[in-house]
């Protein structure tokens, strides 16, 4: 039972972390290696909220706001010239991640800091005591997933975005301002990254490099998922479950490698990964 809950919560965390990266990759075909830094920004936003003595929940909107603002600035200043150079975009965003990390270090110090969890203690789920906050994260991930799905399928912005995903040239031909779509997408993606950072903070600690370990798994999950939130869910469920099982029954180190290695192999066999044709 605990194993099932571990799988469920791990998948939820991975999904939340990867969704912002997926959105940006799906729409812009750009891999945002600053995603880890946006994650970190979100974590520090919730740290600031908690140091200000606000409710632990106040960190959530603050993180989204900070992330989205940072995303806007980055899109305007750095991403614009790089859309035609996707490999260079990886590098520039990685460098940007370095810069954000160092700025955070200068502002907040290098030391590890903590944010109290808004929900304490455990909940009894069918006979197993399980961390209440981890269970809450499942709900949060579901909200993110459903929210994104609704945004993409039920709104005009979603319609336009999907048009850009499918055929950007055609979309531009139809008078869609793809620059604006990119701007909004990047900001939303960055905001989602920050949100995820804020959500994982109570589980771990806050430090300027906390985002990097998350970046790799999220990146590989996005690579196998293409541009679809549904295939991301599938990939996360499958690989997340394997990660937990391998970690629990074999070794946490091998478990930590599971996602990266499996994703690489999946892509070799099936370059489209979990995305449908």
């Amino acid at each position: 039972m605990a194993l099932l809950l571990d799988i469920l919560t791990t998948v939820a965390i991975l999904y939340a972390v990867a969704s912002g990266l997926l959105l940006i990759f799906g729409v812009m075909k750009i891999i945002n290696f600053a995603h880890g830094a946006f994650l970190t920004l979100g974590a520090y936003a919730s740290l600031v909220a908690s140091n200000l003595g606000l409710s632990p929940w106040a960190g959530v909107p603050l993180a989204i706001l900070v992330g989205a603002l940072a995303g806007m600035v980055v899109e305007l200043l750095i991403m614009r010239p790089l859309y035609a150079r996707p490999l260079d975009a990886i590098l520039a965003t990685w460098g940007l991640g370095m810069v954000i990390g160092q700025l955070i270090t200068l502002a907040f110090g290098r030391e590890v800091q903590f944010v109290a969890s808004p929900v304490q203690g455990t909940v009894n789920v069918w006979g197993t005591d399980y961390s209440a906050y981890r269970l809450l994260l499942v709900v949060a991930a579901a909200v993110i997933g459903i929210g994104m799905a609704a945004l993409l399928t039920r709104t005009r912005f979603g319609l336009i975005t999907r048009a850009v995903i499918m055929n950007e040239q055609l979309a531009r031909g139809l008078g869609i301002h793809s620059g604006a779509v990119r701007f909004i997408t990047f900001s939303v993606g960055a905001g989602l990254g920050s949100l995820a950072g804020c959500l994982i903070t109570p589980l771990s600690s806050v430090d300027p490099n906390m985002g990097i370990p998350w970046l790799m798994n999220a990146f590989m999950l996005v690579m196998v998922s293409g541009a679809s939130m549904a295939s991301l869910l599938l990939a996360t469920l499958l690989f997340g479950a394997i990660q937990v099982v391998v970690s629990t029954y074999f070794s946490p180190i091998l478990g930590g490698l599971a996602i990266v290695v499996l994703a690489a192999i999946t892509l070799r066999i099936r370059p489209k990964g979990f995305a449908r044709d």
Binding site: A92, G95, M98, V99, Q102
Partner: peptide, 15 residues
Amino acid sequence: VWKLLLGAAFVGVIV
């Protein structure tokens, strides 16, 4: 600061 400068120079060069 050194790493910050290095990172900024890197981004600048790439862009």
